[in-house]
């Protein structure tokens, strides 16, 4: 009869000592690092650019999900990614940045207005939860804006900022969507 060949159980210290100290990443991360360290520190005049780019990305997404009651900006995907390199904004690109920021702010203001209206239709408990979530998201956005002010070339920070802004927009649209039947009853 052959006994099972299970290896003898090791103790915790032996198991921990056996863990590899090196785990290579699945992809080469150097190109991103090289791009970041090669980029000069952005002067103050250019610091709005990453935020505006994130705003452009978010507004494109928001434009697709906002209901008919809200004005959707007319951005196409191709307009979201500028052909001008981030480090070399020309006058057209700068004008485009300003337009995007203005559109973004207008869209956000409209969403917030509707959100404030619709929030009143929800129960106090739900309102409190949503308000807490929104406060968390806005604090995160502020953290990220501060960080981007220091390091405007960070793609990671920009991605996180974009993600946070998306979540803010998602929250507004979710509230809008879920209260639409009640709003229709009020209107009719």
């Amino acid at each position: 009869m052959t006994l099972p060949t299970r290896p003898p159980r090791r103790d915790l210290d032996a198991l921990l000592a056996g863990l590899p100290r090196e785990v290579p990443p699945a992809r080469d991360l150097w190109p991103g690092i090289e791009a970041a360290i090669a980029a000069p520190h952005a002067p103050a005049a250019r610091r709005r650019w990453p935020l505006a780019l994130a705003a452009g990305l978010v507004i494109a997404v928001a434009g697709g999900v906002i209901g008919s009651r809200l004005a959707a900006p007319h951005y196409s995907t191709s307009e979201v990614a500028p052909s001008t390199p981030v480090g070399e904004p020309d006058s057209l690109a700068v004008r485009s940045v300003e337009v995007r920021e203005a559109e973004f702010n207008a869209t956000r203001a409209e969403l917030v207005r509707t959100y404030d209206e619709r929030l009143k239709m929800l129960s106090p408990l739900t309102r409190a939860r949503i308000a807490a979530d929104l406060a968390t998201i806005r604090r995160a956005e502020q953290d990220l804006r501060d960080a981007l002010g220091t390091d405007p070339s960070s793609r990671v920070l920009m991605r996180l900022y974009e993600s946070a802004t998306r979540q803010e927009f998602d929250l507004y649209t979710t509230v809008g969507r879920n209260t639409e039947p009640a709003a229709q009853r009020t209107r009719s």
Binding site: P20, R21, E22, V23, P25, L29, W30, I37, A38
Partner: peptide, 18 residues
């Protein structure tokens, strides 16, 4: 010297990633 820094990256990235 960015090439030197790349050598440091290559040497240490697996540990830092882990």
């Amino acid at each position: 010297d960015r090439r030197a820094f790349e050598r440091l990256y290559r040497r240490h990235v697996a540990q830092v990633h882990a």
